[in-house]
Design a protein around this nucleic acid. Structure first.
Lengths: 201, 201
DNA sequence: TGTACATCAGTGAACGCGCGTTCACTGATGTAC
DNA sequence: TGTACATCAGTGAACGCGCGTTCACTGATGTAC
């Protein structure tokens, strides 16, 4: 017997979650297109998403939370990309090299976003997930007799640092190119990974 | 015979250049202390320097020029630090390792500033100057029979990428440390450089 | 030597702008009775 | 079936703030005569 009508919460959940992810997508698009994560603003994201600025508050407490969601999604994308590249190869060395290529390609294709991911949180749990993939595949290489690493954990860290350096670097400008000469970066990446992971020649 | 007084420009140059470098110093201090280069503002720099905002316009056209001056000074500092560390060693391998330590230490000690230096200009001429030092010392190692590198130019690039990766990475947080275990970074840096520069064991 | 003045480093007030955030609201939708 | 109403996604106006930049100015200093 309920005299006072119990407020059963009806959840005619309409576009609730839809808008949330639209906001995150808009933020990602903005960072990727402007190439400048530092100019991210709540109003700018709302504009990009085609909504009014206050609408964001229904889904996020403030700009910081939107940024956190953008980072989480970006780490998911990076991890998924590396993972699927690795799984496409059966040979452990090929798998390691594919991981490195996928990782670095993400950095090159989404420069501002990649930098943003590591700007504040250098070594967050999300980043460690990728590191773990690298560690596992190097261990595989050792088991298969393809690597002479005596410390796969530390060497995975080195590979990760190297990939990170590659991912962060930009194309040389014309003047630098003149002084540096052509550098075949995919080939250099492979060379770097082979040395750091102690892959046997 | 000069009827109209020729305006000979008297140059009682007072603190002109002094203020200019005070402004740059204030900007550097601000980046280093706040750890956030994206919040650099003309008014903030003026506040830090103890002058009014419009005073900056006597020395710089706009905020962009101040930032350029900050970057130029910072590259000078990085280069000087690496150079003097190298010159303190006579053995070429020791010199290479000292260069790497000095480089990475700069990145760790001035995180936000280091990132700022490579945020927009990844591979600017100023950055290439440091690269050239590394290339020269690796060439020395090869000459001395201490490195088996067959391509010192490309290998110097790899070392540079590796140093850059190390310099950019942050300390792991507690949770990451638990999963990563302790990683002796100075020792890992040395290991990385030795492998990339093909230093003989 | 004294005095008028050009030079120049630096200031304070003001502007328009985009920002984050708040507030009261609107209008569609689905349920209760 | 019709009608009242609770729910809820989203809006428009407004606020105070720090920003970059401009403008007319101030006051010290060193030189011309």
């Amino acid at each position: 017997m309920q005299s006072t009508p119990v407020p059963r919460h009806r959840n005619p959940r309409g576009s609730g979650d839809q808008l949330r992810s639209s906001i995150v997508d808009a933020g990602i698009q903005l960072v990727d297109e402007t190439g400048d994560a530092s100019r991210l603003s709540l109003r700018g994201i709302a504009r990009q998403a085609g909504i009014s600025a206050p609408s964001i508050y229904a889904h996020f407490a403030d700009l910081g939370e939107v940024v956190d969601a953008i980072l989480a999604t970006s780490f998911d994308q990076l991890l998924a990309s590396v993972r699927s590249a690795m799984q496409a190869e059966t040979d452990p060395v090929d798998s390691l090299l594919a991981a490195a290529r996928a990782y670095v390609t993400f950095g090159w294709d989404h420069r501002a976003r990649y930098r943003m991911m590591f700007a504040t949180t250098g070594f967050a749990p999300d980043a460690v997930a990728t590191f773990s993939l690298v560690e596992a595949v190097i261990t595989n290489c050792v088991s298969a007799g393809r690597s002479s690493s005596e410390d796969p954990h530390a060497d995975a860290f080195l590979v990760w640092v190297g990939m990170h350096g590659m991912a962060t670097l930009e194309k040389p400008d014309r003047e630098s190119l003149r002084r540096l000469g052509p550098l075949d970066r995919p080939q250099l990446l492979e060379r770097m990974v082979r040395r750091l992971a102690k892959i046997r020649p």
